[in-house]
Write a protein that binds this DNA or RNA. Structure first.
Lengths: 295, 295
DNA sequence: CACTATTACGTGAGCCGTAAAAATC
DNA sequence: GATTTTTACGGCTCACGTAATAGTG
């Protein structure tokens, strides 16, 4: 296996465009094409296919992409180590913004202190986290996931319920737990129509035949809490959110809790630094529950 | 980094002889020499040095050797997987014969059942186990070790004491524990002069000013027990040995117990199958103690 | 028609083997 | 002086770029 082929394929697989990949590699477009063709012939399987005007990776192409990234990473680390004597690796963790803010608060600084490796963080929604891990861009991902994926190893991380946040003076604040029906007629602070959290709210309130109004449409827990504080309405948010002073949170047991998974690539090899990050993450699995809810 | 260079260096590093390595690679000797030279120039450090008539790897050469073996392994696995769709990896475990026979009895079959990877076993004395792990030939080693090694991660595995084995009818069999002085005047079944176990026996009995005779000089716990059964004398063996019927074992607390370590390469990346083997080994750490001593 | 993938082909850098020199016991 | 490493050099392969062709919305 020619490592030059792999290097080229890695760049190509990230853009799926021969013209631009060739530019990045400082070779001509046909030269790159020939390389990918030879690599494909050597392996014996097609690595990409046409999808109309665009190209997309086959299953084999996806696996090879992650493998090529691993190899390239390992080679660069080894080269630096041999040349300079120092060991400077990177570990990449992909997760949602809220996950970083509230679930992983403790883990990141602990890793920084304990490990010599640099931590790179990537944020994105569920599908981005998954594709980050599958493509090898991220070594570890933390995201809500229901179905399991063949090429991923997922380990249960933590389970997060839903809460309703409202001004402490709000009549519903006197209840300990809220039934869905209490939301009848309320104004809710919700994410935009296409976000999964909004879809969930729509579906559940719809099937419980609750009438409600949109108070504001905003994106992100922080903003939702901000508007709740301004008295715009009730916000249904993840249990992990830190609730600002003046607001009260009440559990909403009928809403489904969200199972977060720690995912990594099956068949991906794990460097010690990656294993360390994983271990730290696991040991702080439930630490978000000890954070002060009020701030 | 040209992977062809690495492949060649891997073969060369195993023989440290250009002539024979070139034969194995089916290229001419000068061609191989040029490759290694270019690799060395690319990295910027010498990879080997002359030691009289022979060559030996530098520190960088050693690291590169293990790295090259990892890469080659991973590439082969990935190729097979892409071509055939099946995943056929190997994991290599290096340890002493006695270790395999008595300490790891349970772990090996458990791994065979639980993992799809093939297990390759290598046997050798302490220094062979260590060099196996350092060179990447073995992924995991289990061996007695006192001092720690910079390029190895060693985790305490189990601690094994020493026992004296004798015919049940022997006068010393009536004692529960044996003091060293009880060995005064006895005939002992011992390993040859150069073996570490023999050296230990010599030193301890010498400093306790005990007189004793060599009954037989044999190599290996099995043979020592065999001759003990034939009444040739007393055998001082590791506590883990299974004692045949008709023989009695008595603890020898004054003899130092041996600390076994599980070792792996620092900075080596760990495939899932390797992690699984490690986990199984650890979960059976002390299981040798539950084996029946008599058989 | 604009854009990109794919094929064809002549040229040059680099690898290989042969041959010769140097080193080491 | 026998064995092995190291250097030198001519031939040849193969990877590259240029140019031309095919496919697609």
């Amino acid at each position: 296996m020619n490592s030059d082929w792999l290097e080229s394929f890695l760049i190509f697989s990230d853009t799926l465009n021969f013209t631009r990949a060739a530019e990045r590699l400082h070779i001509s477009q046909p030269a790159l094409h020939v390389k990918i063709t030879k690599l494909s012939e050597f392996i014996g399987k097609p690595l990409y296919q046409k999808s109309g005007r665009n190209l997309q990776l086959t299953a084999e192409g996806l696996q090879l992409q992650a493998f090529a990234r691993d190899q390239s990473e390992q080679t660069n680390n080894m080269l630096k180590k041999l040349r300079s004597g120092t060991n400077s690796e990177e570990v990449c963790l992909s997760a949602g913004e809220g996950t970083f803010l509230y679930l992983l608060g403790k883990s990141v600084p602990v890793f920084k202190k304990r490990s010599s490796a640099k931590l790179r963080a990537r944020t994105g929604n569920q599908s981005k986290v998954i594709s980050d891990v599958l493509s090898g861009t991220a070594h570890i991902g933390i995201t809500p996931m229901e179905t399991s994926h063949e090429s991923l190893i997922s380990s249960p991380y933590t389970r997060v319920g839903q809460i309703v946040v409202m001004p402490t003076t709000h009549p519903l604040a006197s209840k300990r737990k809220l039934k869905i029906e209490y939301l009848q007629g309320q104004s809710l602070i919700v994410p935009p129509e296409d976000k999964p959290h909004r879809i969930l709210i729509n579906r559940l309130l719809m099937s419980a035949q609750i009438d409600w109004q949109v108070a504001v449409e905003v994106n992100g827990w922080e903003l939702m809490l901000h508007f709740a504080k301004q008295g715009m309405g009730l916000a249904i948010v993840n249990e992990y959110c830190k609730v600002p002073k003046g607001l009260t949170a009440r559990a909403l047991p009928e809403f489904p809790s969200i199972q977060f998974q720690l995912i990594k690539r099956r068949f991906g090899s794990t460097r010690p630094a990656i294993a360390e990050l994983e271990e730290i993450l696991f040991s702080h699995k439930e630490s978000w529950k000890n954070e002060h809810r009020q701030r």
